[in-house]
């Protein structure tokens, strides 16, 4: 199938050969190196299909045999978040990065790097355990009474559903953290609870605070966000919202939690806690 190129796109040249520069490392703490591959992308190819080509025939542009590049991937339709990497200097999902868009001419070069805010497992594959850990910090769940049949959930206005739905499309890909100047690599797990939690978790706290049942643990979530590494560590660079592939209004979430924590702290102060 050949898609009509959209107006903004330079028409890609069929049969062209392009170069893929990959920043590789054999494991955590191992030195990194660059390897370059030359590939002929299929029409409508994305980064994944190019990496698959390289895996099937791992020979560098110089003709040296090497090992297949390791990378993380899953759904390949930008809904699981696994294949996030830094492409031409910008963090994004590699599945939805079309070669025709970013390398339309012969000889174009695409650079692939692992996310730098998470420890490398190997090559482009990083360990984002901290990201999930941070969801625990803000108790990102609705505290239900268990899975027994206890009737339906709270009714909700269509307008509120629309807000919650968007917040709930966060796939924990980590783009917001990679682009955030306040979120830095932290190998030491013991420091995870006191270093910046990141936009995604703050936004999830907002999501659950908005839910009628979720609201019951609102104070816990806000308490977690008052401490070191909480919402006040946000530096308002607002990169998060610009790189979020799901266009989640992360900066609005940060501001909303800013308001909630302000009110919460004042209430706490006056209630003597």
């Amino acid at each position: 199938m050949s898609a009509q190129p959209s107006a903004s796109r330079t028409p890609p040249i069929a049969g062209r050969r392009i170069r893929i520069k990959v920043k590789r490392a054999d494991g955590p703490g191992k030195p990194s190196r660059w390897e370059e591959f030359e590939v002929q992308p299929e029409p409508n190819a994305n980064i994944i299909s190019v990496l698959q080509q390289i895996a099937a025939n791992p020979v560098t542009a110089e003709g040296d045999h090497t090992s297949p590049v390791a990378w993380d991937s899953g759904c390949l339709e930008e809904v699981c978040g696994a294949c996030t990497m830094v492409i031409n200097g910008r963090v994004r999902q590699s599945c939805s990065c079309l070669i025709d868009d970013i390398a339309p001419a012969p000889g174009d070069v695409i650079t692939l790097e692992p996310m730098e805010k998470f420890p490398v497992v190997r090559d482009l594959w990083v360990d984002r355990a901290r990201l999930f850990h941070n969801l625990k910090r803000v108790k990102a769940w609705v505290p239900i009474d268990g899975t027994y049949s206890l009737g339906h959930g709270p009714t909700e206005s269509a307008a509120q559903q629309a807000v919650r739905y968007v917040l709930s499309t966060c796939m924990s890909c980590g783009c917001c953290l990679e682009a955030c100047p306040q979120f830095t690599l932290e190998d030491d797990e013991t420091r995870w609870d006191t270093t910046f939690i990141g936009a995604h978790a703050i936004s999830q706290a907002r999501l659950f605070n908005m839910h009628e049942t979720g609201r019951q643990t609102k104070a816990d979530r806000l308490d977690a966000l008052l401490g070191p590494g909480g919402v006040s560590d946000c530096g308002n660079a607002q990169n998060c919202v610009k790189v979020c592939p799901k266009e989640i209004p992360l900066t609005e979430s940060i501001a909303a939690i800013g308001r909630a924590t302000t009110l919460h702290a004042i209430a706490q102060w006056f209630s003597g806690r």
């Binding site: 899975t147 206890l150 339906h152 959930g153």
Partner: peptide
């Protein structure tokens, strides 16, 4: 109903 209670944003 269970999913609803868990907070799934059903339309």
């Amino acid at each position: 109903d269970l999913l609803d209670r868990m907070g799934v944003p059903f339309n």
